[in-house]
Design a protein around this nucleic acid. Sequence first.
DNA 1: GCCGTTTTCGGCCCGACTGTTTTCAGTCG
Length: 564
Amino acid sequence: MTKKDIIRLLENIATYMELSLENPFKVSAYRKAAQSLETDPRSLSEIDKFIDIKGIGKGVNEVIVEYVEKGESTVFKELQESVPAGLVQMTKIPTLGPKKIAKIYKELGIDTLEGLKNACENEEISALSGFGKKTEENISKAIDDILIRPERYAINQILKFREIIESHLSESEHVERFDVAGSARRMKETSRDIDYIVISKDPQAFTEEITEADFVKETVVSGDKKLSIIIEDDLQEINVDFRFVTEAEYYSTLHHFTGSKEHNVKMRQIAKKRDEKISEYGVEKDGETVTFDSEADFYNHFGLEYIPPAMRETGEETELDVGDIVTLEDIKGDIHMHTVYSDGAFSIREMVEACIEKGYGYIVITDHSKSLRVANGLDEKRLIAQLEEIRAINEEYDEIDVYSGTEMDILKDGTLDYSDDILKELDYVIAAIHSSFQQTEEEIMHRLESACRNPYVRHIAHPTGRLIGRREGYPIDMDRLISLAAETGTALEVNANPMRLDLSAEAIRHKDVMLSVNTDAHHTDHLDFMKYGVATLQKGLIRKDQVINTMTREDFREFINKQK
DNA sequence: GCCGTTTTCGGCCCGACTGTTTTCAGTCG
């Protein structure tokens, strides 16, 4: 059992209680308790008394203790007996909350999505008091949608949707200014929808214009202050919301709709203690509404430093020294990238020049090793030839240090793809798993341990092998890997490619481990991925001094020349 | 169910919008 299991139990209890029409504050007490556990830096084995955690009192503590000891929960079991699981499915239908679901269940005995769909077609829903034709249509349509549509989209897909919308917004004469908000702005791994804050002199004209665009499938809500549409790209579709605001409100609204919910709740509690009230229109004090010229001003108003969007997740970020947390400006080099030698699209020189553009002081060229044939991995002879070319190119540039490295395969049996005799010639060695993902956790951990213990391996690339929304990655004992990394002086990578973000923010949060954040670029355009990697570090509340590539050019040189 | 520099009861973040009503409940972000 892990902490995650307990968190899931508490969240399930909250959902089931909500559907039993329990006191909403009791429901939210369970959600808060789950959140407190999540935010607590300790692992399950390190927590001896749950009741000492803020947000966990007598009641929730009993539930947790029983669950930890017996592996089951009486409270949850009883809820499951009284609340059909199908009702939980119904909570996914927008506009259907616990009250309406309970009513449908109580009065019509409907407890499945299919049953609900039938009832809509038979006009049984609109016959209920408080429900009308419109509600019935909406429910019916929403059921069709949830059956075909994923609940959340991976950040990679979100970026594609954003390009469509943002190129329209940039060109529209009715848009003075806009910013993306919501989880997309916070660069979450996945998002349910996309939000924009827009200043427009004529929201109605903007609405007419965009709803005519061919990528718009449907208009959901259309008012003076808000527009909600569904857009489509290939076969995928997603909700996009626009909030129309005045210049003065802009940053308050941007902050409000950037969230997260938990962050906003925390900010409002801070405001309340000062007899102030935060809304999307500003901060109300003594009946007057204060507005701001930037989000930094907003935070400063409350005596806080600017908190970057990516960090605004649990609320905990309002309580720590944000200045210690890594930012994009702190990143001085990219130490994992590919060239035409293996499966990259550009030459060493082209990668070097693109990195100079980025202002980096150093980079490491890390092409694939010989066993990764699909990626045209380098055998020893080509590797040495590349090393010589890198040395020569490095001589030509004063503004950047170019190091020779490799992204070497950790083979199935735990041996490494190059011998130590070869590795010692290189400046920087990365090891990674690219094969046999179906092995057991023990076999995978044996491979990772063997790489960590090699004296030349500096870091482990994309340690779990996951692809967001596409594959889980191989089985791994994260606590063990982190302690191995610490013991052997090996860094773990946060791969900045938005399909990977591996390690995840969740995996690194509150962990005292050395990390390395890299784009793994196979194209010069991929060098821009760094911001997603940094966002992941920020969500993990990672300090600058935990990240190898925040080192200055000189420190990195010294680091390279030093034995591991 | 949780919490307390307003401390053992009473409040728990706040406001907008929709669809249903005829003044508002429910839902959402």
